[in-house]
Design a protein around this nucleic acid. Structure first.
Lengths: 113, 113
DNA sequence: GACCCTTCGTCGGTTTTCTACATAGGGTCG
DNA sequence: CGACCCTATGTAGAAAACCGACGAAGGGTC
């Protein structure tokens, strides 16, 4: 476990969504909307994250007929994945901050102090 | 011009380096060291950025014999590329900030205020 | 001549991304 | 009841991106 996962742009978006609320259970369509990824991008990423042990998945325990919709598959960060994701995202942010921090004409931030 | 460029993780690293000092001329080896990319990653990215009109390139006007090294090829952001790069990087940063901002236990930042 | 250094790239295999499509039940409209 | 959209899951296959290895070309050193 924790075998190499390349934290690409698409992967970091998914991790960022998870980190918005690390306690929350998230399902596929939900993650698609929140990350902006199409299913063909999202599900392979979720598979890689699961294989790496960063993410867990469980089937929703609901009767599809009673609920009026298919059962969802809920994904959530493992404790391990939570720690690693935070580190990865922090590293990315630092890199981007270095870029816009050295730039006088800020686009969004008026005062860095 | 300004045809679609996918701002992947590797591309954003290159843009971030350019934004550290948008006035500066940068050459290949320099960008390789600053971005951490191997040549096989960097040069294709520079080509894509040039084709999109985000980056300009000119050959250094120097006598290789006198300088004791091969001439460098200098790359720099176009005015258009500067604007676009800033927007892209700002968007990425916002996304990452939302992720760690909603998280109580901060990893690096003690006080966001 | 053999070797390393700087500097520019390209080549080719692996990994990642993404546009379709597949599946399956439910609801709606005419 | 057939055509169509909605929620859900995911796969298939091609295009794109990545990156280690290599090549080219000159300079210097031993």
């Amino acid at each position: 476990m924790t075998n190499p996962v390349r934290v690409t742009a698409a992967v970091s978006k998914v991790l960022a969504v998870f980190l918005e609320d690390p306690e929350a259970d998230r399902y596929g369509l939900d993650l698609m909307r929140a990350s902006g990824h199409p299913s063909g991008t999202l599900y392979p990423i979720l598979l890689r994250l699961q294989r790496a042990g960063w993410v867990d998945a469980i089937w929703e325990d609901v009767d599809p007929v009673a609920a009026g919709r298919p059962a969802r598959r809920y994904y959530r960060l493992t404790p391990d994945g939570l720690v690693t994701a935070r580190l990865e995202i922090a590293a990315l942010r630092q890199q981007l901050d270095r870029a816009s921090g050295a730039d006088k004409a800020g686009v969004t931030e008026p005062r860095p102090a």
